[in-house]
Every structure is written in structure tokens, then in C-alpha cells.
């Protein structure tokens, strides 16, 4: 009798579950054994029994949830036998420590859980690696052909151009604390902004961690005492709090793939939308599927209808998992 892919990995209410390995991947609720692709809070949750993840993802979880975020933990390092399958972690290019997880059963299809991934070079994490597989499980956050992310350095250039045009106005950029914040800083540095950058308190520890991992972010100062810093980074939620009132006539910017869509930026009162995303855009998403040429594509979350239609047009078997609980761009 042949082994079906869903015997090796299947969607459950707690998230993707691997019966022969007895573990979940990125579970949405506490489970006994969890494999975690990356440290964003909707993928990496506290309260599991045992957690297997990259060393950096484990560090990030400890920073966010405290050292006791799980009963036990193990850093992924090379292929590992769990139950009746072998698992291995491979860079996903999404945020620091992010990984794709490959499940190789003794017999049956190899399944690659890509987690969230990005193929645009990112100065703050390892680049995505192509991993041959039979079943490719992908996100579809930006699974519509309207999403073509521009060169992130060009977007950083637009930010600096605005700062040069409005010298009197501080520029506040909304960024998620893990990944986007550090990438935005690195992009500003690459574009020639050497002056101190002010960061909101919620970004401090994760920025410190990136620096400790050898990623140069240049001079950072707390936003509470910005001094001469005219570029300020904060989690987007801070824009709706009195925190923002300390800045005089600020330009509110926001770095996100969603900034492609004007209504999205306008509803949030954003004056300078910057299209900088840690996810694959449509051309990258479709190119990845062509490149890996899997037998079947499973879609975890996002705009799956668009990607399903593309797979149909290209005669690639695909199915939506419709996992509920992953946000489009987690904070």
C-alpha cells in the first residue's frame, strides 16, 4: 500500500501535525512536541513541552517569552531522526533564524514546510535555499499578481529623499520588532544614513540580539531620548498611542508589503508608504514553485485563491490548508 502525503503531515486544529514523528510544526496552541520555523509570535508560541528550532529562533523565543517558554528545547543542527522520519532545518530568508523544515520519511514523499520565506537578499539573515521536495508547503501572504515588491534599497532611498526634503519633520517608520526593524536599519545604513537612529523601547532587545549575533546596525539611541536622531523606528501599534505625540509634525511611514495597496496605507494615516516585505512577492512565489517543481503544492495561509488559480492555469496540483491563526505580517 502506498503512503499518502497526509499520512506524514496533516492539518489539525493545533496546526500541521506529523503522525510518524509525533510532532507539530508552528503549532497554534500548546502541544507536547513542537518544531518552530521562526520567531514571529504567531508561529512561535510559548507553553509547549519540547521545542526544536534553530539556535537563533530559540534565543528569540527566550527573549520574548522568558527562559521558561517551553519545558525543554533543542537547537536544530543537521538532520535529526524523530520517530519514523528525518527532519532538517534550512534557511528561509525571512528573519534572523528563520528556517524551512524538510521532513523525509523512510518511504513516501519528502515534504518541505517553508514557513514564511523571502528570496530578496536581506542583510540581517541567511538567504533562502532551494530544497528539493515532493510536497511543497508554502505561504501565500502576497499571493496575487498585484504584489511585486520593488528593490528594498530603492524604498530606503525614498525614505532618505523624504528626510532630505522635509528636514524639519522627524520621520517615524512603523516596523515589526523582529526582522523588519533590523532590516530597515540595515537598509538605511546601506543607503548612506550614518547618523544615529532612534528606536522605540519595544525594539531594543531584539536589536541588541542582532548586534550580538554580529549584525552591524550602527549607532542606535532610545526614542525617549532621540537627541539629534531624525529617523525613528517603532512598532506600528505605537502610532495609535500617545507615544507619538512627543514628535512635532512627524512624517508617518510604514515598511510593509501591504503598502503596495493605497487604501491600506490611507486607512492607517500613513504619509510615506514603503513597500518593504520579508515575504516572497508574486513573481518570487510563482518562480519558486516552478523551480522546485514539486508534485503537489499545499498552501498554508494568505491569499490562497490567487495562488490556487495560478496553479490551476499552470496544471500544478495544489490544495489550500486554510490554517487559521497565522497573521499576514505578525507583530
Amino acid at each position: 500500500m502506498s503512503i499518502r502525503p497526509e499520512d506524514i503531515l496533516c492539518p489539525t486544529e493545533a496546526g500541521l501535525y506529523c503522525p510518524p514523528g509525533g510532532f507539530h510544526i508552528d503549532p497554534l496552541r500548546p502541544v507536547s512536541h513542537a518544531l518552530i520555523t521562526h520567531g514571529h509570535s504567531d508561529h512561535a508560541r510559548p507553553g509547549h513541552g519540547a521545542v526544536l528550532a534553530t539556535r537563533q529562533t530559540l534565543d528569540i523565543m527566550a527573549i520574548r517569552y522568558g527562559e521558561d517558554f517551553a519545558a525543554s528545547r533543542q537547537a536544530a543542527d543537521g538532520p535529526l531522526r524523530i520517530g519514523n522520519v528525518t527532519v532538517s532545518f534550512h534557511p528561509a530568508g525571512h528573519v534572523l533564524g528563520s528556517a524551512q523544515i524538510l521532513i523525509t520519511p523512510d518511504t513516501g514523499p519528502r515534504i518541505l514546510v517553508s514557513g514564511d520565506y523571502c528570496r530578496t537578499p536581506n542583510p540581517v539573515c541567511l538567504p533562502w535555499e532551494p530544497i528539493p521536495c515532493d510536497i511543497f508547503i508554502t505561504e501565500a501572504t502576497f499571493g496575487l499578481p498585484i504584489f511585486r515588491h520593488p528593490d528594498p534599497l530603492a524604498e530606503a532611498g525614498r525614505l532618505l529623499a523624504s528626510m532630505a526634503e522635509f528636514t524639519e519633520r522627524p520621520h517615524l517608520v512603523g516596523v515589526y520588532a523582529l526582522g523588519k526593524a533590523q532590516r530597515m536599519i540595515a537598509l538605511a545604513r546601506l543607503s548612506g544614513h550614518d547618523a544615529p537612529i532612534a528606536i522605540h523601547g519595544a525594539l531594543q532587545r531584539l536589536c541588541d540580539y542582532h548586534v550580538a549575533q554580529g549584525i552591524d546596525l550602527g549607532p542606535l539611541v532610545p526614542a525617549s531620548e532621540p537627541g539629534e536622531a531624525r529617523l525613528v523606528l517603532a512598532p506600528p501599534s505605537a502610532f495609535a498611542t500617545p507615544w507619538v505625540q512627543r514628535f512635532r509634525d512627524p512624517v508617518l511611514a510604514y515598511a510593509s508589503g501591504w503598502m503596495t495597496v493605497r487604501a491600506w496605507a490611507r486607512q492607517r494615516g500613513i504619509e510615506l508608504p514603503l513597500v518593504i516585505s520579508d515575504h516572497v512577492d508574486w513573481p518570487q512565489l510563482t518562480a519558486t514553485i516552478r523551480e522546485l517543481a514539486p508534485q503537489e503544492v499545499w498552501i498554508t495561509h494568505g491569499a490562497e485563491d490567487g495562488l490556487l488559480r495560478w496553479c490551476e492555469l499552470n496544471a500544478i496540483p495544489a490544495r489550500p490548508l486554510r490554517l487559521v491563526g497565522y497573521e499576514d505580517e505578525p507583530e
Binding site: I146, R262, W310
Partner: peptide
């Protein structure tokens, strides 16, 4: 593709955009 266009238009909400 017409279907991809319709999905996208729903998402964006503005024809020219």
C-alpha cells in the same frame, strides 16, 4: 487572467490602481 484580475480588483478596490 480574468479570475486573477477579479481577485486583485476586490483586494485593491480601485480600478486604475
Amino acid at each position: 487572467d480574468e479570475q486573477l484580475f477579479a481577485l486583485s480588483y476586490d483586494f485593491v478596490g480601485d480600478l486604475a490602481e
